[in-house]
């Protein structure tokens, strides 16, 4: 065991896979010599050589395309898109190519690539360094979408993603790289070293994709969250004084629907929390599935707490960010119903 923040845990996952599998290669903008703008690949080029860990041109579409070609050859590319906001030039290569290659070739070709990308706001990044575009990718069949909420999960899920033979989009909520941010921007951040999930196992381990985690058991209401919002939801539940069962989805596709359904059938109430915009956000999908599968058990309408349907405004970051107070109000509302 070692104390790690999420950056170190993510670095450790790539380190483990570069060591275990000669086919693993890591590349992206600034990830080679420098080690990445968030330092997630620090030291890896020195350890594994510049043919396996290297810098890429500023061309996200080219990064994805070459990763697909490498995957077809038989390598396991792990690419970094520096910010999730920059992923759109690579959209065609991800959606039309990586996601469909196995299908369209009758199973003869596939691209086992992992696309890592920091997402989410709360760092004063403005509208081009704060987005949470996960629902854009969950809509695409053939892709898997993963969002970890802590160092232990980040390492185990990233190893599972790299080993997966399907393309995986791995979003890293950058606001919790250094500590479990609960949404109180005016309080000092508690580092991961003070949190039990900052104690990360050494070496190789996997957390299977498609398995949610119940981070707090409760009887009154089910809260569905992922990434940064797992911590915000816990703070909001504490403020509301409600006995919430908080589920960290960890993987959006494939979704652990059985875990969700079992919990909602038990509590009869559901609140969904995500930082992304509301309309057609992943919360809409969750809401639909809970309604389809748990309607007779619901005692109140499902409530969503999300980012507003606006770009992420730089000066109004904390009015935009769905903080613990909004979660608290949603919980109280759903308990009244």
């Amino acid at each position: 065991m070692a104390t790690m923040n999420m950056i170190q845990a993510i670095n450790s996952a790539m380190d483990v896979m570069l060591e275990r599998d000669r086919g693993t290669v890591v590349f992206g903008e600034d990830v080679g010599y420098f080690g990445g703008v968030f330092r997630c690949t620090a030291g890896l080029q020195k350890k594994y050589g510049k043919e396996r860990v290297f810098d890429a041109p500023i061309a996200e579409g080219g990064i994805l395309a070459t990763a697909i070609g490498m995957g077809v050859y038989g390598l396991r590319p792990v690419v970094e898109i520096q910010f999730a906001d920059y992923i759109y030039p690579a959209f065609d290569q991800l959606v039309s190519e990586a996601a469909r290659l196995r299908y369209r070739s009758g199973g003869e070709f596939w691209a086992p690539i992992t696309v890592r990308s920091p997402c989410g706001g709360g760092i004063f990044g403005g509208q081009t360094h704060s987005q949470s575009p996960e629902a854009v990718f969950t809509h695409v069949c053939g892709l898997k979408t993963v969002i970890p909420s802590n160092p232990v999960d980040a390492k185990g899920l990233l190893i599972a993603a790299i080993e997966d033979d399907d393309p995986v989009v791995f979003f890293e909520p950058k606001r919790i790289y250094n500590g479990p941010f609960e949404g109180y921007h005016d309080r000092p951040l508690v580092p991961w070293s003070k949190h039990p999930l900052g104690e990360v196992p050494d070496g190789y381990y996997r957390i299977e994709l498609g398995k949610a985690a119940i981070v707090r058991e409760g009887a009154a209401v089910t809260v569905l969250a992922y990434g940064t919002m797992v911590h915000v939801a816990q703070a909001g539940a504490a403020e509301a004084g409600v006995d919430a069962e908080i589920i960290d989805l960890r993987t959006l596709v494939p979704l652990d629907i059985d875990c969700i359904v079992a919990s909602v059938k038990k509590t009869g109430r559901c609140v969904i929390v995500h930082e992304a915009t509301k309309t057609s956000g992943f919360g809409a999908e969750l809401m639909a599935q809970v309604q389809e599968l748990c309607f007779a058990h619901l005692e109140a309408p499902i409530v969503r707490v999300t980012g507003w349907d606006t770009p992420y405004p730089h000066a109004f970051e904390w009015e935009y960010f769905p903080g613990p107070d909004r979660v608290k109000r949603a919980l109280l509302k759903v308990m009244e119903g």
Binding site: R52, G62, I68, G69, M70, L75, P77, Q93, S96, S105
Partner: peptide
């Protein structure tokens, strides 16, 4: 599409195979 004939699956989205071929070639060099 034919793996046996070394013929990559054709995409209807034009041009996507051009940088993919470069990636395959990079992998061969790696």
């Amino acid at each position: 599409s034919s793996k046996d004939s070394g013929f990559f699956s054709i995409s209807g989205n034009l041009g996507t195979q051009f940088p993919q071929a470069v990636g395959w070639a990079m992998a061969s060099a790696i």
